[in-house]
């Protein structure tokens, strides 16, 4: 978790404007969803890996990042590939278990294949955004829009305190572990409960202290977050729009 955030702040694209990265990631994601043709999906997967490698995101880390989506895919594609019925049905392979027929259908395999590509393309867009753009920058940018202001303020507070609480979790966990708090399952559950409860308690107390500290600094119902604003470069913007238009055009030609 911390490493993904570290990378978002320390990559070769950190000086590129958040608008440009949002346009590329968001635009490609939209195209993947609206025009899910194999050629487009493969191009997006390839393009996003190139962008991440250009941003100097370590290849090894990218591979570990894929673990969660692959787990979901393995779990969720299984019911798509295997169909079941009480009657025999046309299938590539059919098994009979008691009165139940289970089989791999062509429709199922085709749907799974299409889904696999679409999901991988969409996840690539998400990874590109997550590894190159700090969440705080996205939230601070979106807070310029008045209807989102309050939610973005809460989100920015959440973001900052996630790391404070996570460090606190690490300290409590270490202290519990050194006192055999996780020696067996029963103690593990109790220790984890105490850990979570104390982090919760700390969060309520910190909220009260934070408000007092803000009042002492002339807080006037609006939180001001500072972040470095990178200028939007028209050349890059045109290039990104060109790539997105090119992706759409590929669908039409194909």
């Amino acid at each position: 978790m911390l490493y993904l955030d570290y990378l978002a702040y320390n990559n070769a694209l950190r000086h590129v404007s958040v608008v440009e990265k949002l346009l590329l990631g968001g635009g490609a994601l939209l195209i993947v969803l609206v025009l899910p043709q194999s050629i487009v999906l493969l191009t997006v997967i390839f393009l996003m890996q190139i962008v991440m490698l250009y941003a100097k995101i370590p290849m090894r880390y990218l591979l570990t990042l894929w673990l969660a989506p692959i787990t979901f895919l393995l779990t969720a594609l299984l019911p798509l590939i295997v169909s079941g019925s009480m009657q025999p049905f046309p299938a590539l392979t059919l098994w009979k278990i008691g009165h139940l027929y289970l089989g791999v259908t062509l429709d199922g395999v085709l749907t799974a294949q299409e889904l696999l590509l679409r999901s991988m393309a969409a996840v690539s867009c998400l990874f590109m955004l997550a590894t190159t753009t700090p969440v705080a920058h996205i939230a601070a940018y979106l807070s310029r829009f008045p209807p989102l202001r309050l939610l973005m303020e809460i989100s920015l507070l959440t973001y900052r305190f996630i790391f404070v609480f996570w460090a606190c979790v690490g300290q409590i966990y270490l202290a519990q572990q050194s006192r055999l708090g996780y020696a067996d399952k029963k103690h593990s559950l109790k220790s984890l409960g105490l850990l979570a409860a104390n982090v919760g308690r700390k969060s309520f107390m910190t909220a009260a202290d934070l408000y007092t500290a803000l009042l002492a600094r002339n807080y006037s119902d609006q939180l001001v977050f500072q972040y470095s604003r990178q200028p939007v470069r028209p050349v890059r913007l045109v290039l990104i729009v060109g790539v997105l238009v090119g992706l759409c055009a590929t669908t039409l030609i194909h």
Partner: peptide, 19 residues
């Protein structure tokens, strides 16, 4: 003052879901 609490409560839920 509840704004702080909401933000921190969301952080707490996030940390809880990451345990």
């Amino acid at each position: 003052e509840q704004k702080m609490l909401l933000g921190l409560a969301a952080a707490f839920i996030f940390v809880l879901s990451a345990l």
